[in-house]
């Protein structure tokens, strides 16, 4: 029976991370309206920035964290203002934005690979013992991962519900034209969303690096999970992405119990495809924008 509990524990650790990824990615999608692949690159860059400041330069952890998060936010804003915004102003379609974001992602990932090499790195400075919680083994880091992820999810949700900028974000996500007419500065909202979304990605990246190894390809995997969580839960919805992430984490663990580990990712992608075919708006999502006639 403890296998079951262990699986659930692992599922929650992974799920909490996926939830944060899903929420931050979904936030960006619902306002910018395209799949910002460079998110994966920013994720990687943030983790390695933390590595640079914490492990290489031996700066205090708090400072490293702050620098990495700021770096990520800046990268996100740069992507939006230097690439996406000009493209949008030109009237480019989602296809162009997608390809541009793919290019940005490739560049970011390769710069990291160039600077740090492909060998795996580790952010934590030593091993830590495991603690038994309800019969499942879990490290203190993992507990911190769960708690921090959940807290960040809650904070984002509260901010979107109750702050002015949060309401503006929701307005833009619902209907860009209408919110523009209502006086919302759409461009500013989108820039802020990119900054915040990237910052959240950075937090998720650093948490993940504390728990497991870092590789230049880590951003790609995180991006995938973020996309799956966001789509399953419904990209317009924060509670949805949360549920999507948790569900994904647990489903993967259960799948791994029965199938070889290698199929873990395939499970995620199949869930995504099934979701796209049968319920594209996700569990909680608003109906997808259909062509208005």
């Amino acid at each position: 029976m403890s296998i079951g509990v262990q699986l659930v524990a692992n599922g929650i650790v992974a799920g909490s991370a996926y939830s944060l990824l899903g929420i931050s990615f979904g936030l960006i999608y619902s306002t910018a309206r395209f799949f910002h692949f460079a998110y994966g690159g920013i994720y990687t860059a943030a983790a390695y920035a933390a590595y640079l400041t914490f492990v290489v330069l031996h700066l205090p952890f708090g400072l490293s964290l702050a620098l990495a998060v700021t770096c990520a936010a800046c990268l996100g804003v740069l992507c939006q203002t230097m690439v996406y915004q000009p493209l949008r102003r030109r009237g480019s379609g989602p296809a162009s934005l997608l390809v541009a974001s793919l290019g940005l992602f490739v560049v970011m990932q390769s710069v990291v690979s160039l600077g740090f090499g492909d060998a795996t790195r580790v952010l934590r400075s030593g091993g830590l013992g495991s603690v038994a919680v309800f019969g499942a083994l879990i490290t203190p880091i993992q507990i911190a991962v769960i708690v921090t992820n959940l807290v960040m999810c809650a904070v984002v949700w509260l901010a979107v519900q109750f702050t002015r900028i949060g309401r503006a974000t929701r307005a833009v996500a619902d209907d860009v034209e209408l919110s523009r007419i209502a006086g919302v500065n759409v461009e500013r909202v989108i820039v802020i969303v990119f900054a915040v979304g990237s910052a959240l990605a950075a937090v998720a990246a650093i948490l993940a690096s504390l728990d497991t190894d870092m590789r230049p390809t880590m951003g790609f995997e995180a991006l995938l999970m973020g996309v799956v969580a966001a789509v399953i839960g419904g990209t317009g919805s924060i509670p949805g992405a949360f549920v999507g992430g948790m569900f994904l984490g647990l489903a993967q663990q259960i799948g791994v119990w029965r199938l070889p580990t290698a199929w873990q990712d395939a499970i995620a992608f199949c869930l995504l495809i099934l979701c796209l075919i049968f319920r594209p708006q996700g569990v909680f999502g608003l109906p997808l924008r259909r062509t208005r006639i």
Binding site: V228, A266, C270, L272, L276
Partner: peptide
């Protein structure tokens, strides 16, 4: 069923499944 960008994601996951 899917609009442009969702379709791209759909094909993306299709590719990932086959690769897997």
């Amino acid at each position: 069923r899917l609009s442009e960008d969702y379709f791209a994601i759909g094909t993306f996951s299709f590719g990932l499944v086959v690769s897997s």
